[in-house]
Design a protein around this nucleic acid. Sequence first.
DNA 1: CTTATGACTAACAATTTTGTTTGCTATTGT
DNA 2: ACAATAGCAAACAAAATTGTTAGTCATAAG
Lengths: 114, 114
Amino acid sequence: MHKENSSDALNRRFLFKKCELNTALNIISGRWKAQIIHSIHNGHNRFHLLQKELTNISEPVLGRQLKEIETQGIIIKKEIPETTPTGIEYLLTGKGERLIPILDNLCNWIKENP
Amino acid sequence: MHKENSSDALNRRFLFKKCELNTALNIISGRWKAQIIHSIHNGHNRFHLLQKELTNISEPVLGRQLKEIETQGIIIKKEIPETTPTGIEYLLTGKGERLIPILDNLCNWIKENP
DNA sequence: CTTATGACTAACAATTTTGTTTGCTATTGT
DNA sequence: ACAATAGCAAACAAAATTGTTAGTCATAAG
């Protein structure tokens, strides 16, 4: 986990204070996070659908990434009634939705500046 | 370094293929990179100026981050003539300049969605 | 002749991130 | 009875990122 007072942790906090840009990047820069957010936006909004989309991801890894972006308020979980076992839907929050165009810009930036 | 065939490396490549978004994020998601790009844009375009801006960064770390964003074509180095020791200026390339508004959007996104 | 400057680099250690193995829940289909 | 489904979680191992220590070069100032 985190060591609170390692140089690494101190530097991370220094950057968070310096500019919100670093906070934002911290949220979306995990290995699968941006892709998960995009995939949910494209309708792959169930655990097993995401597993299919992200061929090589393992269950614990997907679970962790989902939990982290949930903690950051990018997605929320919603139980689907009358399903067994109880299905869970992932939905983008407003914050999450407003991130989508920025991710698209990033995508186009690379396409136009290879 | 890199292990070419570790699961981690394979997954990274899977994502690069899946969507350019992941390539873009890979370029800017190092600990200091986005902040360095922004600082250069704001005129802190010398090695020693960046060191002052990023209080706690060490020289080897700054050197590495600069080299990486140079390799990605975000910045270029330029010798300043008639200086001893020879000074180096860092300049954003076109690709780098076109990244700035996107970083600003990310910054505003967090400010507006805390 | 020692120290300072500007701009690094290699080698190594600390820390964090990512991935793996194993196990769980409750219900339905065979 | 047994496997299958959907959706996880803890504990651990592997790998990558980040930070540290020590050194380089050429010139100029004290």
